[in-house]
């Protein structure tokens, strides 16, 4: 009887380069990056993947992915991705944006790409602040949350309420997959990976717009250590419930 070959628990994704991430300790970008690379590998789309990077912490996307990356101006990723996909429908086009990019300055582009049912996959990393610029209030900042532009905490009467993007997009007929995930527990990591896979299937099966929102820790701007920041993501789920809001795949 020949010994059963054991699959190694982790292999390095082909779609990632070996360059170490520049992200802060405890930031969830690293996990999201790896999951995205794994999904690109699994679907076999690395050679036709086209990523649109945004402005913010993830603007160095081109360092980490062994796929073509185009840098879009702040907020314009979904519009740039639309152009790429319309010109080359055979490509697997995705955007990778933060909440400041996707939901603030670029909300118009994001919503209209979804409303048109563009066959692209949009990934939003929601950490409730403008990370790279230094932790200012973003549209997804929680009520009461202290940021560098709301040092007294977000008072909804003055600074408004958090924007629930996944819930908004779920109402759009052009959206084929829409989910909110987190990566602060192993189970959630696996669910996030499956959501990403389906968000790509939405475009690969020509069904519509795919969207995955990651609740992500930002220890530096939340002024927490990495472990407490990961726990804090649980609190975020009270405002931003996890789940699949629409799935036509």
């Amino acid at each position: 009887m020949s010994p059963k070959k054991i699959k190694p628990p982790l292999t390095f994704p082909r779609s990632l380069t070996e360059r170490p991430f520049h992200y802060c300790p405890g930031c969830h970008h690293g996990i999201a990056h790896r999951l995205l690379a794994e999904v690109i590998d699994e679907l076999g789309i690395r050679e036709r993947a086209y990523g649109v990077a945004s402005i913010g912490c993830a603007c160095f996307l081109y360092y980490y992915y062994d796929v073509d990356i185009c840098e879009a101006p702040h907020g314009r990723a979904c519009a740039a991705a639309t152009g790429a996909k319309r010109a080359r429908p055979e490509l697997a086009v995705f955007t990778y944006q933060g909440d400041g990019d996707f939901a603030a300055i670029g909300l118009t582009e994001s919503l209209h790409a979804a409303a048109r049912g563009e066959r692209i996959t949009a990934i939003m990393i929601n950490n409730t602040v403008y990370g790279m610029t230094g932790g200012q209030l973003s549209p997804t900042t929680l009520p009461g949350q202290r940021t560098t532009t709301t040092p007294e905490g977000r008072d909804p009467r003055v600074y408004g309420y958090p924007l629930k993007v996944a819930e908004i997009l779920a109402q759009f007929p052009g959206v084929a997959f829409c989910a909110r995930v987190a990566v602060n527990t192993p189970k959630r990591v696996l669910e996030a990976r499956e959501a990403l896979r389906r968000a790509f299937l939405a475009q690969l099966e020509d069904r519509g717009f795919g969207y995955v929102e990651f609740l992500s820790a930002c220890p530096v701007n939340w002024k927490l250590d990495p472990v407490s920041a990961a726990r804090k993501v649980d609190e975020l789920t009270e405002t931003f419930p996890l789940g699949v809001f629409r799935d036509l795949t």
Binding site: G75, A104, I105, L107, G134, Q136, L137, P139, T148, T149, T150, P151, E152, Y159
Partner: peptide, 23 residues
Amino acid sequence: VEHLSELVANGELDAEYITVESE
């Protein structure tokens, strides 16, 4: 603008500080 938001929050400056979504 961060410092201005602080001054407003501290009550040192009686002004409206509007956090808009783009320039």
